[in-house]
Amino acid sequence: MGIDQSHGSMEGKEVRFGSHASAYWSIVTTVISTGSVNSMHDSSMPVSGTMQLLGMMTNAFYGGCGVGILNYYIFIIIAVFISGLMVGRTPEFLGRKIEAREMKIATIIALLHPFLILVGTAISTYVFTKDPSVGWLNNPGYHGFSEMLYENTSSAANNGSGFEGLGDNNWFWNVSTGFILILGRFLPIIGPVAIAGILAKKKYIPESTGTLRTDTGTFGIMTYAVIMILAALAFFPALVLGPLAEYFTLYHPK
């Protein structure tokens, strides 16, 4: 708008933190699931908003409270299985075979997170478009969709922060996000515990030449790729409709 932008976008941010530290913390807080904020996420620029959403959508950073390490463990199981199939070795993890039953549980848990978020967002978007007089949205257009997406993501990832422009203190949001919260919190705990129980019952197999080694850099990249593909493939369409569309309309107007 022709003013001095050397301080960055300061809407919703405090001068003592500045825009850099605010943006940094907004992403850290979504990664480690604390939900504490030092700026208003709703007023962040779209790229910061994308990163905040991705932090919660991946939801597999260990060190994060809630289900961070559990989800990471699920992704490791999936990565072991996939890479085992790719190179033709027996998928083993910690000396125990990974078989169909564990894979089924792991896949259900890994898909539960995107399922809860996307279905929740779809329902709320449907309710909103059917009757816009409910008046939840503080911002029109793509950003309004981001607000609803963020609210559902935040409750599925047990984060607690929000795009707080959303008027969410009404029965629809309280009930729907309540369901998402309970499912998104407890199922990812039950799943890995069940897998651990099944694995513990199995016989320990000593490492042989046929074992896929899980302590190498290659396997690390493989796990990373699995997480990225699951997060990106599941959520990318939703991100395109929300913050990314907002970004392109901001910087490349018609």
């Binding site: 001095d4 050397s6 919703g12 941010k13 001068v15 003592r16």
Partner: peptide, 24 residues
């Protein structure tokens, strides 16, 4: 002149109670 106005002076803070302004 308009191009001298820093962005923090025309945008609202997150708390609404920001005690500081930037030096500019």
């Amino acid at each position: 002149h308009k191009s001298e106005i820093p962005s923090d002076l025309v945008t609202a803070s997150g708390s609404g109670l920001d005690p500081n302004i930037s030096v500019q």
